[in-house]
Design a protein around this nucleic acid. Structure first.
Length: 325
DNA sequence: AATTCGGGGCA
DNA sequence: TGCCCAGAATT
């Protein structure tokens, strides 16, 4: 950087910062021709169907959500439909989207909407936030995309785009920070309709172009217009010493295997459960207990293996037979 | 602020 | 194999 003037009273970098308006307009223009046709973006998509898509999309890629969402909306098109469903059917329909507690909460959400909001998805982020499984992001997303309201939507895509375009960083902060929220708030257009378009556009930009790995800067509408990170030569991220949680051999994986058993057969005997990890029976007990605690499984009183069966090993006696709730 | 909570596909 | 994905709830 060769700044002509560098004084304590003159921040050259800030002076050359591209106005937010320019970035907003470039993103919206790009979106109008590059947007994906996703079913929950159709004009006739209900607020409930959009809410369902947002919950399914929490930590789950679009391509994997698509088929599940289609089936789900055909089967349970309204909150009342899902509220009346058997929870076991809900968990089976969730299939392998992951984090099955989301399915449980989505049904709780449907029941709350029926009980407290007359079966209609409520308006307002505060009311949405009070629903099970709806956090800061989803409340804002439903407000913007279902109700076409002005809301500060910040997901992993938007965090990354703003980090690069406006902060000159390769990656967002490790956890959603006050600085990121302030930046997103400052970027949000005052006009309601434009704010909706911006939210959609910047999110899509992060998903399709400004990706986490191998960003496609050559086709980015912000590159030449004023992306701080691009202008700085795309500096590499700072060394991340954080170690991500492994998956192989974790409770998460074993819980997933137990849920897969329950989805397929409806129930599981202690022997079946123990066989999932013969080397560590205590882990199986721990995971079965946590699934019971989460309400993802219940004890199966119809089990053919009763608790007083003396043929069972000690570990198996600590394991209840499980079935879907 | 840090952890826990699935699962699959791709570099 | 490591990393990432339209986060929420709990501590």
């Amino acid at each position: 950087m060769s700044d002509a003037v560098a004084s304590p009273h003159h921040d050259a970098g800030r002076d050359r910062e591209v106005p937010a308006r320019v970035v907003v307009e470039a993103a919206i223009s790009w979106f109008s021709r590059a947007r994906r046709d996703l079913p929950w973006r159709e004009d006739d998509a209900s607020a409930w169907s959009i809410l369902v898509s947002e919950v399914m999309l929490q930590q789950t890629p679009v391509v994997r959500v698509l088929p599940r969402w289609q089936e789900w909306m055909e089967r349970w098109p309204t909150p009342a439909d899902l509220a009346d469903a058997a929870t076991a059917d809900v968990l089976r329909a969730w299939d392998r989207l992951g984090y099955p507690r989301r399915a449980l909460r989505l049904q709780e959400c449907a029941r709350a909407i029926v009980a407290e909001h007359g079966g209609e998805v409520p308006r307002g982020e505060e009311a949405l936030r009070s629903l099970p499984g709806i956090g800061e992001y989803t409340a804002a997303a439903v407000t913007a995309f279902a109700h076409h309201g002005r809301a500060v939507v910040v997901d992993t895509n938007i965090r990354r785009v703003l980090a690069r375009a406006r902060r000159g960083r390769a990656l967002p902060d490790r956890s959603y920070s006050a600085a990121e929220r302030a930046l997103a708030t400052a970027m949000l257009p005052a006009d309601r309709e434009e704010s909706v378009a911006w939210n959609q556009s910047v999110m899509e930009l992060g998903a399709l172009v400004c990706t986490a790995r191998a960003p496609r800067c050559e086709q980015c509408p912000l590159a030449e217009v004023g992306c701080t990170w691009y202008a700085a030569g795309r500096p590499a991220p700072e060394e991340d010493t954080r170690r991500r949680q492994p998956f192989e051999g974790t409770d998460r994986q074993l819980r997933g295997r137990i849920m897969a058993l329950l989805r397929e057969h409806g129930s599981a005997e202690p022997e079946q459960l123990a066989a999932l990890d013969p080397a560590d029976p205590a882990r199986v007990v721990r995971c079965a207990t946590s699934l019971l605690s989460d309400g993802l499984a219940v004890r199966d009183p119809q089990s053919v293996t009763s608790a007083q069966d003396t043929a069972r090993t000690q570990d198996e006696q600590d394991l209840p037979a499980l079935r879907l709730p």
